[in-house]
Deep mutational scan, measured.
Amino acid sequence: MTEYKLVVVGAGGVGKSALTIQLIQNHFVDEYDPTIEDSYRKQVVIDGETCLLDILDTAGQEEYSAMRDQYMRTGEGFLCVFAINNTKSFEDIHHYREQIKRVKDSEDVPMVLVGNKCDLPSRTVDTKQAQDLARSYGIPFIETSAKTRQGVDDAFYTLVREIRKHKEKMSKDGKKKKKKSKTKCVIM
């Protein structure tokens, strides 16, 4: 069974824990209790493949930012979460993405942009803004509501699919490099 290491990042209060708990335990946590770091595991079937999701729910508070490099190193894919009623959390996505790329030393890291709290009427981040940002990053965008469960499975499952595509691409690139290195030079 394939294991996928997913990391949920975003500013404090955007609903990272609520999304994760909704996926794992099928219930909505409405009281806000700032996370330092929590880890969850769940076995699911995605596109006919049974897999184990190892999900790291991270601290959004700035005082825990020193811990970010460590979990970013171990993560295979990242859910970059903002709240649709919090423009600052949307603007912060850029910083999370840049930090992930720096730590992973790669421009090509599996990510999904997630606009959470889409059940709320007080939207300050337009869907088109988020779609445009995701398009500019070359990553999928999904709106979710941890409260109603809308888009929750889709967000995590899409990230797994992005990781699969990335692994497939990397193995193809690896095979191309191996083929090239088999060419021999004969000096007579």
Rank of each mutant, 00 (worst) to 15 (best):
T2F: 10
T2H: 11
T2V: 09
E3A: 10
E3N: 05
Y4I: 15
Y4W: 07
Y4L: 12
L6G: 02
V7L: 08
V7D: 03
V7C: 11
V8S: 03
V8H: 02
V8P: 01
V8Q: 03
V9W: 06
V9R: 03
V9F: 12
G10H: 00
A11G: 08
G12M: 10
G12H: 08
G12N: 09
G13S: 11
G13Q: 11
G15H: 00
K16L: 01
S17I: 02
S17Q: 00
A18L: 02
L19S: 15
L19V: 12
L19N: 15
L19M: 14
T20W: 00
T20D: 08
I21H: 10
I21G: 10
I21E: 07
I21S: 09
Q22A: 07
Q22Y: 04
L23E: 15
I24R: 05
I24T: 12
I24P: 02
Q25E: 04
H27S: 14
V29R: 05
V29S: 10
D30L: 08
D30T: 12
E31Y: 10
E31R: 04
Y32F: 07
Y32A: 05
T35P: 01
T35N: 01
I36Q: 03
I36M: 06
I36H: 05
E37P: 01
E37N: 02
D38R: 00
D38G: 02
D38S: 01
S39Q: 07
S39D: 05
S39W: 03
Y40P: 00
Y40E: 00
Y40H: 02
Y40C: 01
R41G: 06
R41C: 08
K42F: 08
K42R: 11
Q43H: 11
V44P: 11
V44T: 11
V44I: 15
V45K: 13
I46E: 12
D47W: 04
D47R: 07
E49K: 13
E49Y: 08
T50V: 11
T50G: 10
C51M: 13
C51Q: 12
L52T: 15
L52V: 15
L52E: 15
L52W: 15
L52H: 14
L53I: 15
L53A: 10
D54L: 03
I55Q: 02
I55H: 04
L56Y: 09
L56E: 15
D57V: 02
D57A: 01
D57W: 00
T58V: 08
T58C: 11
A59V: 03
A59Q: 07
Q61G: 14
Q61H: 12
E62H: 09
E63Y: 05
E63K: 09
E63M: 05
Y64D: 15
Y64G: 15
